Computed example of a mutant assay.
Amino acid sequence: MPDTAVRRPLRADARRNHQRILDAAQQAFAVHGAGASLEEIARRAGVGSATLHRHFPSRRSLLEAVFRDRVEALCAKARQYARDSEPGTALFSWLRDFNAYAATCRGLAASLAHEEREPARVRQDEGCTVMITSAAGELLRRAQRSGAARAGLRVDDLLALVGAISLATEHRGDEEQARRLLDLAIDGVRVP
């Protein structure tokens, strides 16, 4: 099917299955993190593995569907900070929000960063990773232009730092340590 093809609306039973899969995935990811068993998610949703994969062809597509609303809210916060704060303050405030978000999503940041890219039929500009990268990139460019952030930094450096902090602290459940580590990282991002 070409990328430009219009998809037909789902039948009522397919819509129900889709929603049941999302609900089961949200619960499983909350308990077991981004690595939760897809077979267990299908079982909890009352569907077969093939049905789950028909709706969500990869783990990444399921993760993106489950966390999309939260990512959109995080990106809206970046736009608000950009409007209401100095560039450095906007970037560092948003990084703290992203760090807190990554801590609550148990492995999502690492999973989205390391999974294989989606098939060509999924538009790249709709993905959570693309939205987060775009939001962070705009804040970083503004902070660099204002002299608040080091010139050589790249947006993927910042996102990798937050992802690494999330990975290092997720099994301990120590949000305070995650905040301290991010403060250390921010000290390295700031222009002295």
Rank of each mutant, 00 (worst) to 15 (best):
108 L>I: 01
94 W>D: 13
57 P>Q: 06
57 P>H: 01
48 G>F: 12
35 G>M: 09
60 R>L: 11
93 S>T: 10
23 D>F: 06
31 V>R: 07
56 F>L: 00
91 L>F: 07
61 S>G: 05
62 L>Q: 02
36 A>R: 03
122 V>C: 09
122 V>H: 11
24 A>I: 01
107 G>V: 03
99 N>K: 13
77 K>V: 05
27 Q>P: 04
119 P>Y: 13
91 L>G: 10
46 G>P: 15
121 R>Q: 13
61 S>Y: 09
90 A>C: 12
75 C>M: 12
55 H>P: 15
94 W>K: 06
56 F>R: 04
121 R>L: 12
110 A>G: 09
28 A>N: 02
39 E>Q: 14
65 A>C: 00
99 N>L: 07
25 A>R: 00
32 H>D: 11
72 E>L: 12
77 K>H: 14
72 E>A: 06
110 A>L: 14
104 T>N: 06
51 T>Q: 09
73 A>M: 04
43 R>F: 07
90 A>L: 15
29 F>Q: 00
105 C>D: 08
73 A>L: 13
91 L>K: 05
49 S>I: 14
26 Q>H: 08
40 E>Q: 14
46 G>A: 05
98 F>W: 09
37 S>C: 11
53 H>F: 09
39 E>R: 11
68 R>G: 04
119 P>W: 07
75 C>K: 08
102 A>F: 11
118 E>K: 11
65 A>N: 05
110 A>F: 06
103 A>F: 10
19 Q>F: 10
59 R>M: 12
64 E>Q: 03
26 Q>G: 09
82 A>W: 06
106 R>E: 04
94 W>T: 06
90 A>P: 14
84 D>Y: 05
75 C>S: 04
56 F>H: 00
23 D>M: 01
32 H>G: 01
50 A>K: 09
33 G>K: 02
19 Q>P: 04
65 A>T: 04
116 E>P: 01
59 R>V: 03
23 D>A: 04
68 R>D: 04
109 A>H: 01
83 R>H: 11
30 A>N: 10
94 W>H: 13
101 Y>C: 10
55 H>Y: 04
28 A>F: 00
88 G>A: 12
92 F>K: 04
51 T>D: 05
40 E>H: 01
114 H>Q: 08
51 T>V: 12
54 R>T: 09
38 L>F: 02
60 R>Q: 11
91 L>A: 10
112 L>S: 00
112 L>P: 11
66 V>L: 05
60 R>C: 03
105 C>T: 09
122 V>M: 08
52 L>Q: 04
79 R>H: 10
58 S>T: 12
80 Q>G: 13
32 H>S: 14
100 A>F: 10
57 P>D: 02
88 G>F: 14
108 L>S: 08
122 V>G: 01
88 G>S: 14
66 V>M: 07
85 S>F: 13
78 A>D: 03
87 P>V: 10
98 F>H: 07
